[in-house]
Amino acid sequence: MSDAALPPDSAAAPAATPASEPITPAQRDDLRRQGILLTSIEELYNWGRSHSVWPLNFGLACCAIEMIAASMARFDIARFGSEVFRPSPRQADLLIVSGTVTKKMAPQVIRLWNQMPEPKYCIAMGACAISGGPFKQGYNVLKGIDRFIPVDIFIPGCPPRPEALLHGLVQLQAKIRGQPLTGPDAPRHLRSDVECNCPIPEFGAHDLVPTQNPTVWQPPQPIVRPDKA
């Protein structure tokens, strides 16, 4: 790589770093361009994790077909290290909620989430998994899977195109790479003060009991536009 491709201040930047201060990501990238690989345990760990996210082989509705299409030849999810669709939740890192979650199905989805080992991530794929989507007014439709389990990435669309799923996967990888391993923002699997399991609702006489998991979801305050207040 020629020096002309580097940003103008790149040559001066590494030299200006005192040995006692941590190296910044920009400086690390600059060093990489010079052929020097410097890394931290945190970066190496997250880099490894983010490029082999194994999804659960779990289709719910229409979006599942697009999820299959994303793993087929044209879209080829293998480019992102996620082609290994595992049939068992015990072997999966990523739950792609691909489609409408009905109230009859919700306990099973949550049970699958609980059976997945940490670190685990959840993508709500499509309008139905986000909010109920076009079927929101149905009596048997859960109005968003985020009422029961924590969701990392929301992919809108009905159904989202396979490209959108790939984009969501890339966003998830960026999120994993940005997770610090220590401190209050550490992921769930490295902390002992966070409950990883979500309570599984029961079938009631008219609805699920309870209808939501208040530790992960609270109804947001409505947005009031200043001109309509």
Binding site: K104, Y139, N140, F203, G204, A205, H206, D207, T211
Partner: peptide
């Protein structure tokens, strides 16, 4: 599900 008590396609069904 089996414990469900209403008949939702009736016109007077009140959804949750």
């Amino acid at each position: 599900w089996d414990g469900f008590q209403d008949h939702p396609m009736r016109r007077d069904y009140v959804e949750p």
